[in-house]
Amino acid sequence: MRPLIQFLFKYYNFFLFLLLEFFAILIIYQNSYYQQSSILSAANAISGGIYGFSSGITDYIGLKSINKTLADENAHLLSLQKSSFIKTNNKVFVVNDTLYQQQYTYLSAKVISNTANRANNYLTLNKGLKQGIKKNMGVISSQGIVGIVKDVSENFCSVTSLLHSKTKISAKIKKNDNVGTIIWKGDDYRVVTLKDVPAHVKISVGDTIISSGYSMMFPEGILIGSIYSYEINKGKDFYEIRVKLFNDFNNISYVYVINNLMKDELNELEKRSQNE
């Protein structure tokens, strides 16, 4: 017995080595059979915590590109939405394998310059002719109408903001579909004015104002704002409604440009009927 113990003592390092290697092999063996229940997985508290911490840092670096992809995806989703399609449900219609035909497509763009404190405000977007943007397209953000494309260059476009003395946008009260015109009086960048709503219509503070769909730039139902206050001017039969915008025009970073696929058709029709 003694020689054996002496032998073990003499080479205890080697046996320790064998023992540890045995454990390691055991772990490999166990891991290859029970992948999920392994103690040594990167999902335990310590390693998971450290990975969470490090991805907290690296995620922040990737935030910019993530934002961009989200905006792109939103644009794609908006163009799939029901309101982007026009119903072609005629009694007699030419072979057309879908009930709905797409009328609006959306393009996401980034605002690269913007003002809100002047009498006539403009935005500049980072998309232009090359990306398919044309004059007179509508521009919205996720919170509501932003403006109308005024000028296009190769890679950029400038947008007449809703906050512009010449901007007129057809809007309606969501509750009862009464149509009016949105203008901006140039005083407060958070408030616009809704004109031409007849005085007999019942309205109340807080009613939502949306786009009417009468213009060629915006589909029906795009948000604009909510009623903030209203009055009837003496001797007139129309309201003067102050509308608080949903959009914070001081803080717009990503917008969507709306392409009305049937604009040319509508234009032509209107021109023809005006000429008569």
Binding site: F23, A24, I27, N31, L40, I46, S47
Partner: peptide, 30 residues
């Protein structure tokens, strides 16, 4: 030598824990 072995074992265990390699680094480091 026993200290080197033990610390090598722990080191490999830590690396395995993070890289989901289950014991491979432990064996090599020991």
């Amino acid at each position: 030598r026993w200290l080197i072995l033990i610390s090598g074992f722990l080191l490999g265990l830590c690396i395995d824990m993070f890289s989901n390699s289950g014991g491979i680094h432990t064996a090599a480091t020991v």
